[in-house]
Computed example of a mutant assay.
Amino acid sequence: MTDQNQPPKDPPPQQPPPNMGEGKPPKPNPPAPDQGGAARRFCCLCIFIFLLLAGAAVLTVWLIYRPHKPRFIVVGAAIYGLNATSQPFISTSMQFTIVTRNPNKRVSIFYNKLQAYVSYRNQQITPTMDLPPLYHETKRTVSLSPVLGSGMVPASAEVVNGLMIDETYGVVALKVVLLGKLRWKAGAIRTLKYGFYVRCDVWVGLKKGVVGPVPLLGAPPCKVDI
């Protein structure tokens, strides 16, 4: 039986919740400014400005001088030998007078690794010949007269038969080819070397047994690719 006059017991003290105000992680420090990244961006900006100014300077010089391609034309021809009897080879000896014009007023031209040969029906009929380097001054005309051939070159039956038929008619269509590298020079400025390819279509009056100069029946200006 319970004693109703007994005083009530005090409630047990309440424990504070765990991790309240203790073990709190410290606040992270603010990140330091990225000085290395700023320096890199500044360097990139300087390089970009330099390249932009250099490109503008080159473009200005190019627009002022504006180098044009040289011009070529064949003005004379001579045939000293044409032997197509030793199939599948052919032996020829030809000379062509080629006039080249530098149309630029302020830009001269250097020719390096200059070579020449003759083709017939898109097949080479003379060995490739190395020509000496050439310096072409502004607004000047230069004449070249290389003797091409004097060597055996493989030839197809189409080439041999075509030459024999053309000799019978007295008209032979040939192509004189010049190739190599050139660069332009304007004052102290020199460009990089550029490959060039010159194709000169010529029609010569050739009959069997004729040796020496032959008439040019057609020789339009040569096509120049750079």
Rank of each mutant, 00 (worst) to 15 (best):
T92H: 06
T92R: 04
T92L: 11
T92A: 12
T92G: 05
S93W: 13
S93G: 14
S93A: 15
M94D: 13
M94L: 14
M94N: 10
M94P: 00
M94T: 11
M94Y: 14
Q95C: 13
Q95I: 12
F96H: 07
F96S: 05
T97G: 02
T97I: 15
I98M: 05
I98Y: 05
V99Q: 12
V99A: 10
V99P: 00
T100V: 08
T100Y: 07
R101K: 12
R101T: 15
R101N: 14
R101V: 14
N102R: 09
N102C: 06
N102K: 06
N102S: 09
N102G: 07
N102E: 10
P103M: 07
P103G: 11
P103N: 10
P103Y: 10
P103H: 06
N104W: 07
N104L: 10
N104G: 03
N104K: 05
N104E: 05
K105D: 14
K105N: 13
R106A: 13
R106N: 14
R106W: 08
R106Q: 13
R106P: 00
V107A: 08
V107P: 04
V107K: 03
V107W: 02
S108E: 12
S108K: 08
S108N: 07
I109K: 00
I109P: 00
I109T: 09
F110T: 06
F110H: 06
F110K: 03
Y111N: 05
Y111W: 08
Y111D: 03
Y111S: 00
Y111V: 07
Y111P: 03
Y111M: 02
N112T: 09
N112R: 05
K113T: 14
K113D: 15
L114H: 02
L114W: 01
L114P: 04
L114K: 02
L114G: 02
Q115C: 09
Q115H: 11
Q115V: 07
Q115N: 14
Q115F: 05
A116Y: 03
A116G: 12
A116L: 03
A116H: 09
A116W: 06
Y117E: 08
V118Q: 03
V118C: 01
V118A: 07
V118D: 08
V118M: 03
V118K: 05
Y120C: 02
Y120P: 05
Y120A: 05
Y120L: 02
Y120E: 07
R121L: 15
R121W: 05
R121T: 11
N122H: 14
N122V: 07
N122K: 15
N122S: 14
N122C: 09
N122D: 15
Q123A: 13
Q123D: 10
Q123F: 10
Q123N: 06
Q124R: 14
Q124P: 01
Q124H: 02
Q124V: 14
Q124I: 14
I125L: 10
I125A: 00
I125K: 02
T126E: 11
T126W: 03
T126M: 10
P127G: 12
P127R: 07
P127I: 10
P127L: 13
P127A: 11
P127M: 05
P127W: 11
P127V: 14
P127N: 12
T128Y: 01
M129P: 00
M129A: 12
D130G: 08
L131K: 00
L131T: 02
L131Q: 01
L131A: 00
